[in-house]
Structures are given as C-alpha cells and as structure tokens.
Amino acid sequence: DKIVFAIGGSPQSLQGQTAQEFTRRLQERLGDGVEVEYYDSGQLGDERQLVQRLRMGTVDLAAISSIMSSIAPEFALFDLPFLVKNRDHLKRIDSEIVMTDLAANAAEQGLKIVSTWENGFRHITNNNHPIVTPSDMEGMRIRTPQSEWRTSMFSAWGANPTPMAFSEVFVGLQTGVIDGQENPLTNIYGARFQEVQNYLSLSSHVYSPIWLTAGTGRWDSLSDEVKQAIVDVAAETQDWALVRGAELDEELLVQMKNSGMEVNEVDREAFVEASKSIYQTFASQVPGGEQLVERSLTLAND
C-alpha cells in the first residue's frame, strides 16, 4: 500500500522543508507496511491540478495554499490584509475557525483539510524607495499572484498589481518591467530577489497558510489507523513548521541585509486604514463573511 503526497513548491522553500519533515515522520510512524511517496516542485502538477487529482483519488495528500479561496470563497479570509497578527494568533484561528468552519466549507467541495502549515508572512520588495505608507506605492508595478483578492488589495493601496510567470520575475525586476514583488522571505531568498531589489519593506500584509489536504472520497477509504497516523503526524509537523518559519524569518532577514537591501518597517495603521474596502467586499461577497472577520480579529486579543 502507498500514500502519494505532492506539493507544488520547491524542496528549499518552507513548504518543501515542512513536507519533507512530514514525509519522514509519517514514514517512520507507518513503518514498512505503507510506503509514503513524496513529490515536490510541481512534478505531479501545480496546485490547481493537485486539487483535481485529489478529487479523482490519483493523489492522496497535497499541500494547497492560495488556490483554496477560488474553491471555497470563505478561505479568502486569509487574503485579507493584516488579519493574522502573529503565529500564536494563527494557531487560535486555526483551531477555532479553520478546522471547524472552513474545513466544513472545503468538505462541501470534496476536500478534507487535515492540517494548517505555513508559507510565511508576505513582505514587499521594490527598487524605487522604502514603502512606509500605501501612498509610497502609487503607480508602482508590483508583481502579485493571479488571485483576485491579492490584486484588488494592491489596487486599493494605489499600486499597479501586475501578474507575471514566476520564472520571469527575476529578470523582470532587473530590467524594470516591474518595480517590485511580494512574497514570504523564504521565497524571496530562494529566487535570489535580494540581488536585484534595493528595498525590503516588512509589511507582513498577508500570512499565507498552506493546507495539508486530502480528497474526501479517498480519505474515507483509508483505514482508521492510517488516518490517525496522518492526523497526528500532521499536527506535530504544524508545530515544527511554525517554529521553523519563525527561525527562517530571523535568519533570512540578516541575509537580506547582508546582501545590501535597505530594510524598513511599514506604518501598519495607515495600511489597515487603506484596506477597509477589501474587508467590506469580503463581508458583502462571502457568505457569513462579516462574522468570520469579527471572530478572527477577536482571537487576536487573547
């Protein structure tokens, strides 16, 4: 018997490191009876294809992130700027909202959410000047992923969100087709953007989780023992991932400074102020959206 587990990211990224840790621990727990087969770098397809394969049952487990909000709109909660304050806050949102409400939404779409791991806090880099308030981004061409929410967020701040294939971003930043981009530090470092960007603004504007996901059909057919092993190991791995994420943030910040980047903090209040329209859109577009936001924000104060 075997469990096929696939991710879209590279082995060096935080999700890649987490996935390898998970594979190692799960294999240890399951012993020789079940073989855990692991694929990274989109070998079995990008996230979109992995979701389709989860539903068909031709992949058993996959790590799915940004695409989740186009599957169940409630997941766009994590596309709201400045929703997640820190990793403790994230853990509370995870146990009280993700694993209850959002997991039910995903189940309606044929997907079982097993655990919430991390891609990291996203920050903005650019070549023009430090970004402190949204007005500093006026007219700046910022490469963002295709997600509707991410692009409308940057539009609301006055930037010009520009989609671009990830493989062209490095050269795009250097030649000036685009002025900046936004990503977690691990992705910035992995793609060596620090070599072609002058300014790093620590905006933490979005926390990207990544969800360990199974297809409901295939999940139900697994034995209880295997299911329990996956759930337990995934939870252990969550703790590992959050610690590793925090570690990497510190290590990589030093690396960024060493390679000559000017690092600055942003005026969070000004950004939150400029983001109100996004929260309103979320409240009006997503069923139960207003409550989801309220509950998440309350959890920040515990």
């Binding site: 397809g45 979109r48 294809q49 394969r53 049952g57 031709t58 294939a165 062209e168």
Partner: peptide
C-alpha cells in the same frame, strides 16, 4: 498505476499546453 489514472491524461494534456511563457 491502473485504469483510474487514465483520467489524469486529459488534465495533463491541458496543463501541458497552458504554459504562459
């Protein structure tokens, strides 16, 4: 991998052709 995996073929064909560059 068996018959069920033949469903991957149309998906993979489509995915192979939707390569932006």
């Amino acid at each position: 991998m068996g018959e069920q995996h033949l469903m991957n073929i149309p998906l993979t064909l489509f995915n192979g052709a939707t390569n932006f560059p």
